[in-house]
Simulated scan of single mutants.
Amino acid sequence: MDAPLLDIAEVARRSGLAPSALRYYEKRGLITADGRNGLRRTYRPGVLERLTMITCARSAGLSIAEIHRFVVARPSDADLRARMTARADDLDEQIGRLTRLRDSLRHASVCAHEPIVDCPDFRRAVGNVPREHGTADADTPPAPAPPA
């Protein structure tokens, strides 16, 4: 037996998106309404998974057009695959920058160096200063300085 359809208000509630966003995504071909209950659009429950993917892609900086190209892609679309690989590489770089920022903030929260921004360990965590030859791997965050 098929799962019951969800009306637009329920999809909005469960997804955390406004009904206007759902209508916009439908207009752009990212999701499809299954029908109507009176004047209200209805959707299959699987739309929630699609909306989770769309929300994740949007938060990673993908445009609506990029997401649309992805959701209609076929395995034979070599150009799209190349663009997805390039985008994944960009995200890896962004993750690296964010990881360095996180590590530097964690170090700064316990660092006794004055000023903190001049601390060699802080600067290494941010990525401003390369590690010296023979020291720990550049992906390893520095040990926090003991509290003052």
Rank of each mutant, 00 (worst) to 15 (best):
P146N: 07
D92T: 13
V117L: 08
M53S: 15
L51I: 07
T135H: 02
V117A: 14
S15N: 00
A21F: 09
E114Q: 11
R124M: 14
R50W: 00
H113V: 11
A78T: 15
D92C: 12
R102E: 09
R87C: 07
G134K: 10
Q94A: 09
H68N: 05
H113P: 01
R97Y: 04
M1F: 12
H113G: 04
I116E: 04
A73Q: 11
G35M: 01
P130L: 03
R44K: 10
R81C: 09
P142L: 11
Y43S: 06
P130I: 03
A136V: 12
D92P: 06
A86K: 11
R50C: 00
A73C: 11
D77M: 07
P120K: 03
S20P: 02
I8K: 00
H68A: 03
H107T: 13
T52C: 08
E26V: 10
R44S: 09
L105P: 03
E66M: 09
S15Q: 02
E49C: 08
R81W: 12
N128L: 13
R83T: 14
E49R: 14
R58F: 04
T85L: 08
R23T: 06
R97H: 06
N37H: 14
E93W: 10
I95E: 08
A21G: 02
S109A: 15
L91W: 07
R58M: 02
